Amino acid sequence: MIAVVRDTATAEQLDHLVSWIEDRGFRTNVSQGDNETIIGIIGDTTRIDPFILESMDIVERVQRVSEPYKLANRKFHPEDTVVDCGHGVLVGGGNFQVIAGPCSVEGDNLIEIARAVKAAGATMLRGGAFKPRTSPYTSQGMGARGLDLLMEAGAELDMPVVSEVMDPRDVQLFLDKGVDVLQIGARNAQNFTLLREVGKTNVPVLLKRGMSETIDELLMGAEYVMSEGNANVMLCERGIRTFETRTRNTFDVNAIPVLHHLTHLPVVGDPSHATGYTRYVRPGAYAAVAAGADALEIEVHDCPSRAWSDGSQALTPAQFADAMRRIALIREAVVAPVEEA
C-alpha cells in the first residue's frame, strides 16, 4: 500500500503520519520526489483501513500495491534511483555508463586491458577474481590476489571496480579490499543468504538475472537485498536459457523497458554473456542501448584466444573502441529529445 502525501504537508506532519503507521506494526519507505511524497507501507496491509488514512488532512490518496516486491516497485518510488558507484560515476536517472574488462583477472595484462577500455570510453572496470565454473577442473580465478590487482588498476585509472562475490563468507573480504560494486552472478541470483549479506552493506550491488528467472523473480531478488537496508541495486539482463542453441543464451532485450516500467532501479545490459560469441556482442550491445539500458557490461581481452575463461565472447580492445563509437551515436539518436513540428 502507498499513501500519497499532499504537497502542503509540513515535515512535522509527515513525521507524525510515519510514526502513526509504524506504531501499528508496519514498516515505511518514504520517497520524496520533485512533485510528490509517497509513503510506502510494508507489511500485511489488509490490517489497515485505507479510508482512515484518506481521512487524514495531509493524505492525497491511498493505493494498494498487488506486486510482492515493494521496495523495488516504481509505485513506491516513482523517481529513477541513481546509484553512486564511486569515483564520480553515477548509474541511472539519465546517467549512462559502460563496465568493461576481462572475464577473469589473469595477472599483469589486466592493467593494459584496463587502460585500453578507459581510453575507449569505459567508465567502470570489471574482472572476476572468484569464478563460478560449471566444471570444478577449470580455472576458478586468482582469488584475493585478483582483487588486489583489480583495485590497483582501478586506483591508477580512477575507475570503480566491479567484481563478483560468490560466497556470503567472502563479502567482508570484498569490503576490506574496497571493491566498489558487488556483482551477484546468474548462478547466485536466488542465493538468498548471499543476497541478504550484501544487503547488509551500503556498497552498490549489480544483480544479474538468473538463467531461468522470470522478471518478477529478478525483482524479488532485488527485494531481498533492499529489505536489509541496501537500496543501491542495479539489475542486469544477461540472457536467459531457452530452447535456442545458436547463442549461449537468449538476450531478453524486452526485459529492459519492462523493468523500467516496473521498477525505479537502474537496468544494465550484458550482451557478452547473453550471446556468447564475439560476433554477436556488438549488435547485442546496440540493441540494449536502443532499448534504454542505463549501462552495459562488456567483456574485453587483449588476446581472447588465450583467455582463462569466456574468450569466445570477448571483444578485443580495437573492437571495443569501435563499439563505443557506435554506442555514442545510438544514444544520441535514442536519448535526444524529439522536437515537435
Rank of each mutant, 00 (worst) to 15 (best):
T8R: 13
A11Q: 11
Q13M: 09
L14F: 01
H16R: 10
V18A: 05
V18E: 14
S19N: 11
S19L: 09
D23I: 02
R24A: 13
R27N: 13
G33A: 15
D34A: 14
T37D: 11
I38K: 11
G40L: 13
G40S: 12
G43N: 09
T45M: 09
T46N: 14
I48Y: 01
I48P: 01
D49C: 10
L53H: 03
E54D: 12
M56H: 10
D57A: 15
I58T: 05
V59K: 07
V62C: 09
Q63L: 15
Q63C: 13
Q63R: 14
R64G: 09
V65R: 05
E67Y: 06
P68M: 11
P68H: 09
P68C: 14
P68R: 15
L71M: 10
L71Q: 02
N73R: 09
K75H: 06
H77K: 13
H77V: 07
T81I: 10
T81G: 05
N95W: 08
F96S: 04
I99Q: 01
G101E: 01
G101C: 07
N109W: 05
L110S: 02
L110A: 04
E112Y: 10
I113N: 01
A114H: 00
R115G: 08
A116H: 06
V117C: 06
A119K: 14
A120M: 07
A120Y: 00
G128F: 00
G128V: 01
K131H: 00
T134F: 03
T134Q: 11
T138D: 11
G141W: 00
G143S: 11
M151G: 02
G154V: 07
D158F: 03
D158P: 01
P160A: 13
S163R: 06
M166N: 10
F174V: 04
F174S: 02
K177S: 07
D180P: 04
G185P: 04
A186G: 13
R187D: 05
N188L: 01
Q190G: 00
T193A: 13
G199Y: 01
T201P: 09
P204M: 11
P204L: 12
V205R: 03
V205N: 05
M211R: 02
S212L: 06
S212I: 09
E213V: 03
E213K: 04
E213H: 14
I215D: 00
I215S: 00
G221N: 05
G221L: 04
S227N: 14
N230S: 13
L235Q: 02
I240S: 00
R241Y: 08
R246E: 08
F251S: 05
D252Y: 01
I256M: 07
P257G: 09
H260D: 08
H261T: 14
L262T: 03
T263H: 02
P266W: 03
V268C: 02
S272D: 07
H273E: 08
Y277C: 07
T278K: 11
T278S: 14
R279G: 04
Y280E: 06
V281K: 02
R282Y: 00
D294C: 11
A295S: 13
L296N: 05
E299N: 04
E299A: 01
H301R: 07
P317A: 09
P317L: 07
R325M: 12
R326M: 10
R326D: 13
L329Q: 15
I330G: 04
I330P: 01
E332K: 14
A333G: 13
V334T: 15
V335D: 15
A336S: 15
V338D: 10
E340T: 14
